[in-house]
Nucleic acid binder design. Structure first.
Length: 261
DNA sequence: CGATTATCCTGTGCGC
DNA sequence: TGCGCACAGGATAATC
Protein backbone atom coordinates (compact mmCIF):
# COMPACT_ATOMS: atom_id res chain seq x y z
CA UNK A 1 0.00 0.00 0.00
CA UNK A 2 2.86 2.35 0.77
CA UNK A 3 4.31 1.72 -2.67
CA UNK A 4 0.94 2.35 -4.33
CA UNK A 5 0.50 5.62 -2.44
CA UNK A 6 4.01 6.78 -3.35
CA UNK A 7 3.58 5.97 -7.02
CA UNK A 8 0.20 7.65 -7.35
CA UNK A 9 0.27 10.55 -4.91
CA UNK A 10 3.77 12.06 -4.86
CA UNK A 11 3.23 15.81 -5.21
CA UNK A 12 -0.56 15.62 -4.97
CA UNK A 13 -2.26 18.67 -3.47
CA UNK A 14 -5.21 18.20 -1.12
CA UNK A 15 -8.01 20.62 -2.01
CA UNK A 16 -10.67 19.49 0.41
CA UNK A 17 -11.20 17.10 3.30
CA UNK A 18 -14.52 15.44 4.12
CA UNK A 19 -14.90 13.48 7.34
CA UNK A 20 -18.20 11.63 7.62
CA UNK A 21 -17.35 8.78 9.97
CA UNK A 22 -17.24 9.52 13.67
CA UNK A 23 -14.49 7.07 14.61
CA UNK A 24 -11.91 7.06 11.82
CA UNK A 25 -10.12 10.28 12.70
CA UNK A 26 -8.56 9.72 16.10
CA UNK A 27 -6.27 11.77 18.29
CA UNK A 28 -7.16 14.91 16.31
CA UNK A 29 -10.53 16.58 16.39
CA UNK A 30 -12.09 16.84 12.95
CA UNK A 31 -11.40 20.57 12.67
CA UNK A 32 -7.71 20.18 13.43
CA UNK A 33 -7.48 17.31 10.97
CA UNK A 34 -9.17 19.23 8.16
CA UNK A 35 -7.09 22.33 8.77
CA UNK A 36 -3.85 20.39 8.74
CA UNK A 37 -4.62 18.71 5.42
CA UNK A 38 -6.42 21.39 3.39
CA UNK A 39 -3.98 22.87 0.94
CA UNK A 40 -1.19 20.48 1.91
CA UNK A 41 1.03 18.68 -0.61
CA UNK A 42 1.90 15.01 -0.10
CA UNK A 43 5.67 14.84 -0.40
CA UNK A 44 6.85 11.53 1.08
CA UNK A 45 5.52 8.06 1.82
CA UNK A 46 6.89 5.98 4.64
CA UNK A 47 5.85 3.13 6.84
CA UNK A 48 6.65 1.80 10.28
CA UNK A 49 5.20 -1.62 10.89
CA UNK A 50 1.55 -1.44 9.89
CA UNK A 51 1.36 2.36 10.11
CA UNK A 52 1.43 4.31 6.85
CA UNK A 53 3.18 7.71 7.02
CA UNK A 54 2.38 10.37 4.44
CA UNK A 55 4.64 13.38 4.80
CA UNK A 56 3.16 16.84 4.22
CA UNK A 57 5.01 19.85 2.81
CA UNK A 58 4.89 21.60 6.20
CA UNK A 59 6.80 18.74 7.82
CA UNK A 60 3.85 17.18 9.57
CA UNK A 61 2.72 13.63 8.82
CA UNK A 62 -0.62 12.05 7.98
CA UNK A 63 -0.59 8.70 9.81
CA UNK A 64 -2.93 5.85 8.88
CA UNK A 65 -3.56 2.34 10.14
CA UNK A 66 -5.96 0.09 8.21
CA UNK A 67 -6.47 -2.38 11.09
CA UNK A 68 -8.88 -5.22 10.21
CA UNK A 69 -11.00 -3.81 7.41
CA UNK A 70 -9.62 -0.46 6.32
CA UNK A 71 -9.03 0.36 2.67
CA UNK A 72 -7.49 3.26 0.81
CA UNK A 73 -9.09 3.69 -2.60
CA UNK A 74 -8.07 6.20 -5.24
CA UNK A 75 -11.01 7.14 -7.44
CA UNK A 76 -12.28 10.02 -9.59
CA UNK A 77 -13.87 12.65 -7.34
CA UNK A 78 -17.20 12.19 -9.11
CA UNK A 79 -17.43 8.48 -8.29
CA UNK A 80 -20.23 7.56 -5.91
CA UNK A 81 -18.85 6.65 -2.49
CA UNK A 82 -19.26 3.05 -1.43
CA UNK A 83 -20.82 2.21 1.94
CA UNK A 84 -18.52 2.79 4.92
CA UNK A 85 -16.55 5.58 3.24
CA UNK A 86 -15.52 7.66 6.26
CA UNK A 87 -12.89 10.12 5.01
CA UNK A 88 -12.34 11.67 1.58
CA UNK A 89 -9.34 13.71 0.52
CA UNK A 90 -10.20 15.56 -2.68
CA UNK A 91 -7.08 16.23 -4.73
CA UNK A 92 -6.47 19.21 -6.99
CA UNK A 93 -6.19 16.93 -10.04
CA UNK A 94 -9.74 15.60 -9.81
CA UNK A 95 -9.03 12.37 -7.98
CA UNK A 96 -10.00 11.47 -4.44
CA UNK A 97 -8.22 9.36 -1.85
CA UNK A 98 -10.92 7.61 0.17
CA UNK A 99 -10.71 5.77 3.45
CA UNK A 100 -13.28 2.98 3.61
CA UNK A 101 -13.59 0.87 6.75
CA UNK A 102 -16.65 -1.27 7.61
CA UNK A 103 -15.48 -2.27 11.09
CA UNK A 104 -14.18 1.21 11.94
CA UNK A 105 -11.11 -0.08 13.75
CA UNK A 106 -8.79 1.83 11.43
CA UNK A 107 -7.52 5.29 12.22
CA UNK A 108 -6.14 8.43 10.64
CA UNK A 109 -4.46 11.39 12.30
CA UNK A 110 -1.98 14.16 11.60
CA UNK A 111 1.00 14.59 13.86
CA UNK A 112 4.50 16.04 14.07
CA UNK A 113 7.48 14.52 12.26
CA UNK A 114 8.83 12.91 15.43
CA UNK A 115 5.68 10.73 15.61
CA UNK A 116 5.22 10.61 19.39
CA UNK A 117 2.14 8.38 19.01
CA UNK A 118 4.31 5.65 17.49
CA UNK A 119 7.08 5.80 20.08
CA UNK A 120 6.19 2.42 21.56
CA UNK A 121 6.61 0.53 18.26
CA UNK A 122 9.49 -1.89 17.99
CA UNK A 123 11.90 -2.18 15.08
CA UNK A 124 10.28 -2.71 11.71
CA UNK A 125 10.33 -6.39 10.72
CA UNK A 126 12.18 -5.61 7.47
CA UNK A 127 14.92 -3.67 9.29
CA UNK A 128 15.74 -6.57 11.56
CA UNK A 129 19.16 -8.10 11.07
CA UNK A 130 20.09 -11.42 12.60
CA UNK A 131 21.97 -10.09 15.67
CA UNK A 132 19.09 -7.71 16.43
CA UNK A 133 16.62 -10.58 16.24
CA UNK A 134 18.81 -12.69 18.50
CA UNK A 135 18.92 -9.88 21.06
CA UNK A 136 15.14 -9.41 20.98
CA UNK A 137 14.50 -13.11 21.39
CA UNK A 138 16.87 -13.41 24.32
CA UNK A 139 15.27 -10.55 26.22
CA UNK A 140 11.73 -11.98 26.20
CA UNK A 141 10.43 -14.99 28.03
CA UNK A 142 7.08 -15.49 26.30
CA UNK A 143 6.13 -17.74 23.42
CA UNK A 144 7.51 -17.21 19.98
CA UNK A 145 4.16 -16.50 18.31
CA UNK A 146 3.25 -13.89 20.92
CA UNK A 147 6.61 -12.21 20.38
CA UNK A 148 6.17 -12.07 16.61
CA UNK A 149 2.75 -10.46 17.07
CA UNK A 150 3.86 -7.94 19.69
CA UNK A 151 4.23 -4.63 17.83
CA UNK A 152 6.29 -3.19 20.70
CA UNK A 153 8.97 -5.78 19.98
CA UNK A 154 8.82 -6.18 16.19
CA UNK A 155 6.50 -3.95 14.14
CA UNK A 156 4.75 -5.21 11.04
CA UNK A 157 3.95 -8.90 11.54
CA UNK A 158 0.29 -9.88 11.94
CA UNK A 159 -1.60 -13.10 12.43
CA UNK A 160 -1.34 -14.46 8.89
CA UNK A 161 2.36 -13.79 8.54
CA UNK A 162 3.34 -14.96 12.02
CA UNK A 163 1.89 -18.38 11.18
CA UNK A 164 3.47 -18.49 7.73
CA UNK A 165 6.83 -17.40 9.15
CA UNK A 166 6.73 -20.06 11.89
CA UNK A 167 5.85 -22.75 9.36
CA UNK A 168 8.62 -21.65 7.00
CA UNK A 169 11.15 -21.64 9.88
CA UNK A 170 9.83 -25.04 11.06
CA UNK A 171 9.31 -23.67 14.57
CA UNK A 172 6.36 -24.07 16.92
CA UNK A 173 4.66 -20.90 18.08
CA UNK A 174 4.61 -22.33 21.59
CA UNK A 175 8.41 -22.39 21.82
CA UNK A 176 9.84 -20.10 24.51
CA UNK A 177 11.33 -17.22 22.54
CA UNK A 178 14.58 -17.12 24.50
CA UNK A 179 15.45 -20.79 24.03
CA UNK A 180 16.09 -21.01 20.31
CA UNK A 181 19.35 -22.50 19.12
CA UNK A 182 21.46 -20.26 16.87
CA UNK A 183 20.54 -22.29 13.80
CA UNK A 184 16.87 -21.79 14.65
CA UNK A 185 17.31 -18.04 15.05
CA UNK A 186 18.88 -18.08 11.61
CA UNK A 187 15.92 -19.95 10.13
CA UNK A 188 13.50 -17.52 11.78
CA UNK A 189 15.37 -14.51 10.44
CA UNK A 190 15.41 -15.96 6.94
CA UNK A 191 11.70 -16.81 7.17
CA UNK A 192 10.70 -13.29 8.21
CA UNK A 193 12.47 -11.81 5.20
CA UNK A 194 11.27 -14.50 2.79
CA UNK A 195 7.60 -14.50 3.81
CA UNK A 196 7.20 -10.73 4.03
CA UNK A 197 9.19 -10.20 0.86
CA UNK A 198 7.08 -12.65 -1.11
CA UNK A 199 3.84 -11.30 0.39
CA UNK A 200 4.72 -7.77 -0.71
CA UNK A 201 5.76 -9.02 -4.15
CA UNK A 202 2.36 -10.71 -4.45
CA UNK A 203 0.61 -7.57 -3.20
CA UNK A 204 -0.69 -8.94 0.07
CA UNK A 205 -3.20 -11.49 1.25
CA UNK A 206 -6.87 -10.98 0.44
CA UNK A 207 -9.18 -13.46 2.15
CA UNK A 208 -12.62 -14.51 0.93
CA UNK A 209 -14.26 -11.23 1.93
CA UNK A 210 -11.61 -9.19 0.04
CA UNK A 211 -11.20 -6.67 2.84
CA UNK A 212 -7.63 -6.06 1.85
CA UNK A 213 -7.38 -4.50 -1.58
CA UNK A 214 -4.86 -2.17 -3.12
CA UNK A 215 -5.30 1.49 -4.04
CA UNK A 216 -7.07 0.47 -7.26
CA UNK A 217 -9.40 -1.89 -5.40
CA UNK A 218 -7.59 -5.03 -6.57
CA UNK A 219 -6.92 -7.99 -4.22
CA UNK A 220 -3.46 -9.46 -3.67
CA UNK A 221 -2.58 -13.08 -4.40
CA UNK A 222 -0.40 -14.20 -1.51
CA UNK A 223 -3.39 -16.08 -0.04
CA UNK A 224 -2.82 -18.59 -2.87
CA UNK A 225 0.64 -19.24 -1.42
CA UNK A 226 -0.46 -19.70 2.20
CA UNK A 227 0.94 -22.93 3.56
CA UNK A 228 -0.94 -23.08 6.86
CA UNK A 229 -3.03 -19.96 7.50
CA UNK A 230 -6.73 -20.78 7.16
CA UNK A 231 -5.91 -24.37 6.15
CA UNK A 232 -7.00 -26.40 9.19
CA UNK A 233 -7.52 -30.03 8.23
CA UNK A 234 -5.79 -29.66 4.87
CA UNK A 235 -2.47 -31.40 4.27
CA UNK A 236 0.75 -29.64 5.21
CA UNK A 237 2.48 -28.86 1.89
CA UNK A 238 5.77 -30.14 3.32
CA UNK A 239 4.82 -33.41 5.02
CA UNK A 240 1.17 -34.11 4.26
CA UNK A 241 -0.03 -34.21 7.85
CA UNK A 242 -3.24 -32.29 8.56
CA UNK A 243 -2.69 -28.67 9.55
CA UNK A 244 -4.01 -27.95 13.04
CA UNK A 245 -5.87 -24.92 14.35
CA UNK A 246 -5.47 -23.88 17.96
CA UNK A 247 -6.45 -20.65 19.67
CA UNK A 248 -3.81 -18.41 21.21
CA UNK A 249 -4.94 -15.22 22.92
CA UNK A 250 -8.24 -15.30 21.01
CA UNK A 251 -6.46 -15.53 17.70
CA UNK A 252 -6.45 -18.52 15.39
CA UNK A 253 -3.08 -20.21 15.12
CA UNK A 254 -2.46 -22.63 12.25
CA UNK A 255 0.51 -25.01 12.31
CA UNK A 256 1.87 -28.43 11.48
CA UNK A 257 2.58 -30.66 14.47
CA UNK A 258 4.91 -32.86 12.44
CA UNK A 259 7.27 -30.40 10.83
CA UNK A 260 7.25 -27.51 13.29
CA UNK A 261 9.34 -28.18 16.36
C1' DC B 1 6.18 -10.43 33.91
C1' DG B 2 3.25 -13.15 30.87
C1' DA B 3 -1.11 -15.16 29.47
C1' DT B 4 -5.96 -14.66 28.90
C1' DT B 5 -10.29 -12.15 28.30
C1' DA B 6 -13.23 -8.53 26.86
C1' DT B 7 -13.98 -4.64 23.94
C1' DC B 8 -14.42 -1.61 19.97
C1' DC B 9 -17.55 -2.66 15.04
C1' DT B 10 -19.85 -4.76 10.57
C1' DG B 11 -20.32 -8.48 7.49
C1' DT B 12 -20.40 -13.20 6.02
C1' DG B 13 -21.12 -18.02 6.11
C1' DC B 14 -22.77 -21.93 8.34
C1' DG B 15 -26.05 -25.25 10.64
C1' DC B 16 -30.65 -25.84 11.75
C1' DT C 1 -35.95 -17.53 4.17
C1' DG C 2 -34.87 -16.62 8.59
C1' DC C 3 -32.34 -17.05 13.02
C1' DG C 4 -28.52 -17.56 16.03
C1' DC C 5 -23.82 -18.29 16.31
C1' DA C 6 -18.85 -18.32 15.18
C1' DC C 7 -15.41 -15.96 13.11
C1' DA C 8 -12.52 -12.28 10.64
C1' DG C 9 -5.81 -9.15 8.33
C1' DG C 10 -5.66 -5.45 15.16
C1' DA C 11 -4.66 -3.10 19.32
C1' DT C 12 -5.35 -2.20 24.07
C1' DA C 13 -6.97 -2.23 28.84
C1' DA C 14 -8.21 -5.01 32.61
C1' DT C 15 -7.66 -9.14 35.19
C1' DC C 16 -5.78 -13.53 36.70
Amino acid sequence: MRRDLARELEGAVIDDVTVTGARSVRRNDTRTFRRALRGATLVSFGRHGKYLLMGLDDGRVLVAHLRMSGQFLLVPSAAAPVKHTHVRLALADGRELRFVDPRTFGELFVTTADLPELATLGIDALDLDRPALEALLGARRGRLKALLLDQRVIAGIGNIYSDEILWTARLRGSRPANRLRPVEVGRLHDAIAAVLGEAVARRGSSLADAQYVDLAGQPGSYQEAHNVYGRAGLPCPRCGRAVERTVVAQRSHFWCRNCQR
